[in-house]
């Protein structure tokens, strides 16, 4: 039996079902909206020197944090993470992977890699481009938010992949986490922010910005050590647990 290795055939099947025409369109809409917003801000900056000053100050990090890290990454993580395995489990076609002498962890790791690939293509790269558009350079802001988006995207994809293996209501649960817990509860209850992938990845952004972070208004709820540790622990734990769940996955709930 193969070990934990990435499996090209599983990846190819996953990519084909994940990137159907409609889903690709939905996936492309989100980064296009971000880029449109950034280009609009840039154009306004060209007209109005006040906005131009804002763009080199707090406006660019604010837009990248609010739209890139807080909206784009959880939604893409949700679509890619659950989409990498959820439909196969719902339809039952996962049986063609499970009835093979394949390590279950290798199936999960492969699907996570594909999901992260989608998140990078439709989320992390657009955040990088948005950073360049807003700031006009590949500077600290662009690099920091690109790395932060990558860290968030990997963690979201891993958590939502696990949700798809563990629950038939993964999309609803994922939306509740991303929209209600991280955005609403996190905004009202300071303690809740400590349990938020968004804040953990912002800690990465804050550290990469260094002394400029406070001037640019980037202030994560947790320190880099805590944020990075939690990102790694959650990603690894979610992947391992998803593999375990896949070993005992019940194919159809027959009574």
């Amino acid at each position: 039996m193969s070990g934990l290795a990435f499996n090209g055939t599983v990846a190819s099947l996953t990519r084909r079902s994940l990137l159907g025409r409609k889903r690709t369109l939905v996936l492309a809409l989100l980064p296009l909206a971000l880029l449109a917003l950034c280009i609009f801000a840039r154009v306004l900056g060209g007209i109005d020197s006040g906005i131009e000053r804002e763009l080199s100050g707090r406006l660019a990090p604010d837009l990248l944090a609010a739209f890139g890290i807080a909206i784009l990454m959880p939604l893409l993580g949700l679509i890619a993470g659950t989409g990498a395995i959820g439909p196969e489990i719902d339809e039952g076609s996962i049986v063609y992977l499970l009835a093979k002498p394949l390590n279950r962890y290798s199936i999960i790791v492969t699907k996570l890699v594909v999901a992260v690939g989608v998140v990078v293509g439709f989320g992390v790269l657009p955040v990088a481009v948005a950073g360049v558009v807003l700031t006009g350079e590949v500077g600290a802001v662009t690099v920091a938010f690109t790395v932060g988006a990558l860290a968030a995207g990997v963690a979201y994809a891993a958590v939502f992949l696990l949700l798809a293996v563990a629950s038939r209501n993964a999309v609803v649960l994922g939306l509740i986490y991303a929209l209600i817990w991280e955005s609403l509860v996190g905004g009202l209850v300071p303690g809740a922010q400590a349990l938020s992938i968004q804040q953990w990845s912002l800690a990465v952004v804050e550290r990469l910005l260094g002394d400029d972070a406070s001037r640019l208004g980037v202030d994560a709820a947790v320190g880099l050590g805590t944020g990075l540790t939690l990102l790694v622990v959650v990603t690894v734990a979610a992947t391992v647990y998803a593999g375990r769940r896949l070993q005992t996955l019940r194919l159809n709930d027959e009574t």
């Binding site: 079902s17 039952g92 049986v95 159809n252």
Partner: peptide, 18 residues
Amino acid sequence: DPEIYREVGLVPEREEMY
């Protein structure tokens, strides 16, 4: 035991494939 699938072939009832 995934190793059994070297010897077992399965045609599931459900129609969905890729």
